[in-house]
Simulated scan of single mutants.
Amino acid sequence: MTNLAAPLHRQGNTVLVVEATSTPVHEARHYGIDSNQATLLEALLRPELLQPLITDDSRGYSVAKLLPGNTASRFLQQDNIKQQLERLFLTMAGQHDIVLVDAALTVEDTMPLDVLHHGEILIHMTRDTGSITQAYTLIKRLCSQVGRRTLDIVVSHASEAQAHVVFNNIAAVAHRHLDIKLDFAGLIPSDEHLNIAAKLGRNVIEAFPKTKAAAAFKALAGKIDHNHGLLETSLS
């Protein structure tokens, strides 16, 4: 997500990255979330904390977190809390050109916030058998709640030929069994510079701008900017 946010910001957009899984805050530090930063849920439940909700990353984009941890997901089952979170999220989103959301489906097979069903949804997968199975399961779970709609697919750790084979296979199965259309959003090739940049705490665009991975993220960012927003559903 940070590798996507960086080129989107360079295109002149104000970008907000929202970590919307149930991952504890200390495990989501790679997003640049500050330890003194409140999650959206904490801001609603404990307004007296007066902690900032958004951190402006030095690389040009902003970051926020929806939930403080695994146990907090139960609050999403309370309609009044969920509606307040929706309003707060929409207020924050309205202050930015593009919002990227790292989300995982709830036990009810829905997005953490209902509004996320209305955005562009990108599903990330590799050509690993387990990843392909996870991706197709996720597609089925999504369709059971939001019905027939187009979903975007990005394939990583593959060559261009391999990525298209993987995509064509899953697209054919989804069309045959679910009657839905999948779009190929792009591929992120295997590139050791991704891991090196991550260890440095930097995005690959900034650290290694001439690499294949950097070029791939720039291309994907161009498509996201064209669609004016993309919501990523993680496979966690």
Rank of each mutant, 00 (worst) to 15 (best):
S156F: 12
K218P: 00
I180Q: 03
V15D: 01
L194R: 10
V25D: 07
G32D: 02
V115Y: 12
K223T: 00
P112N: 10
H157D: 15
P189F: 08
L4M: 10
L66H: 05
C143P: 03
T23R: 11
K218F: 04
G32V: 01
A207V: 06
R29E: 02
T106N: 06
I54E: 03
G119C: 12
D56A: 11
Y31R: 07
A72V: 00
M111I: 05
S58K: 12
A221S: 09
E232T: 10
G32S: 05
I205V: 13
I54T: 01
L76Q: 08
A104H: 10
L45R: 11
L138W: 08
H226M: 12
L220S: 04
E86D: 10
G60W: 01
L151E: 07
L90V: 01
S156W: 13
L235D: 13
V107F: 14
Q37K: 04
D225V: 07
H193K: 14
V25H: 09
S156I: 00
L220I: 02
E160V: 06
G119V: 06
E108G: 12
G69E: 04
S58T: 14
R141T: 03
D225L: 05
V99W: 02
H177W: 11
Q78S: 12
D56W: 02
L44P: 03
N36Y: 09
A103C: 10
H157I: 05
L231I: 08
